[in-house]
């Protein structure tokens, strides 16, 4: 019984983390899947969200900036606004870059940010990070505190899914896809490509900040390595590509699937003898890479393909050969 309860708690934790990664993958899907913006600095936006919310909501501490004691929802909103503002600033400078150059620029900015977080000890407590971050429902009895967090995360994912799916199917989603497919033609069709790309970059950045804030409150602890390229940026990219770039359901599914693989390999490697365990930690990255290879061999466009929807099923006209009868 105890063991079952343990498994239950583990599953709740796993799904909560998967849900948080789904928020990140949905954010990246707006940028890459919809609009074709190659953001290789996911970890940077994630870290901004995590740190802003952590600093604003934590109790006062001599080790880092804080003591504002704001409620968690306010911290999360501030995290989204801060990430959005940073995305706007980066967008103003970098958004004209071609996709591979945008990737290098965003990767560099995220790395700079990580080093700032590590070295501005007065604000962030450096490499030792910020601990005792408040968590929603933490005064509720176990396991309902964990379940409450899971439901909160899933509710957020659901709301985001509905909003983003509606956006994707709208003329907004169409013009973003047009920019992704052919920038020059979109310009020649009168679209303000720069403004629209920045818009997608900001919206995606805000969701990454949201994901970071949720992670900080869920784990209750945050340190600069959360912005590390492998565990943050790379993993979210793998999630989106495996799930199906351009497809919101794919982003959510990919996040939960890859997070499960990533965590399951952690369980396996910790059971190995200690001299193997350290080596095996690197094997995890290899395994995720291998999973990516296998899945992409079978599903080159990801498990859920991007679906176009403007088909004649919704047509207002009968086909032309019927039209003589009707008019």
């Amino acid at each position: 019984m105890d063991q079952l309860y343990g498994i239950f708690l583990y599953a709740v934790f796993l799904l909560t983390m998967g849900g948080i990664y789904a928020v990140l993958a949905l954010g990246l899907n707006i940028q890459w899947g919809f609009t074709g913006l190659f953001n290789a600095g996911v970890g940077g936006f994630f870290a901004i969200g995590a740190y802003v919310s952590a600093i604003l909501t934590s109790a006062a501490s001599a080790r880092h900036l804080g003591g504002y004691d704001l409620p968690v929802p306010a911290g999360i909103c501030a995290a989204m606004i801060a990430s959005a503002l940073v995305a706007w600033g980066i967008g103003r400078i970098c958004i004209r870059l071609r996709s591979d150059y945008l990737a290098i620029a965003t990767l560099g900015i995220a790395e700079i940010l990580r080093l700032v977080l590590k070295n501005e000890i007065w604000a962030t407590n450096g490499a030792r990070g910020i601990s005792r971050i408040p968590k929603p429902f933490e005064h509720v009895a176990e396991p309902w505190n964990q379940v409450g967090m899971l439901l909160l995360v899933f509710a957020i994912v659901l709301v985001l899914y509905v909003l983003l799916e509606r956006a994707r199917r709208s003329p907004w989603g169409r013009v973003m896809a047009a920019i992704r497919e052919n920038e020059d033609a979109a310009r020649a069709a009168g679209k303000d490509v720069e403004r629209l790309r920045i818009e997608a970059f900001i919206l995606g950045g805000a969701l990454m900040g949201l994901g970071g804030a949720l992670m900080a409150h869920h784990i209750k602890f945050i340190e600069p390595n959360v912005a590390e390229p492998v565990s943050a940026t790379f993993l979210v990219w793998v999630m989106l590509v495996i799930g199906g770039s351009g497809n919101n359901r794919g982003a959510i599914f990919g996040a939960i699937l890859v997070w499960t693989i990533w965590s399951a390999t952690e369980i396996l490697t910790t059971r190995l003898p200690s001299e193997w365990a350290t080596k095996a930690a690197y094997l995890r990255i290899f395994l995720v890479g291998l999973a990516l290879q296998i899945i992409l061999q079978k599903f080159p466009e990801g498990i859920f393909r991007e679906r176009r929807f403007q088909t004649s099923a919704a047509s207002v006209h009968p086909p032309p050969f019927n039209r003589e009868n009707t008019s």
Binding site: R174, A177, A178, E181, N182, D184, A185, A186, A188, E306, R308, Q310, T311, S312
Partner: peptide, 11 residues
């Protein structure tokens, strides 16, 4: 300069 992965109608 078509929008390749949009349908003809969407283009």
């Amino acid at each position: 300069h078509e929008f390749g992965r949009l349908t003809v109608l969407e283009n």
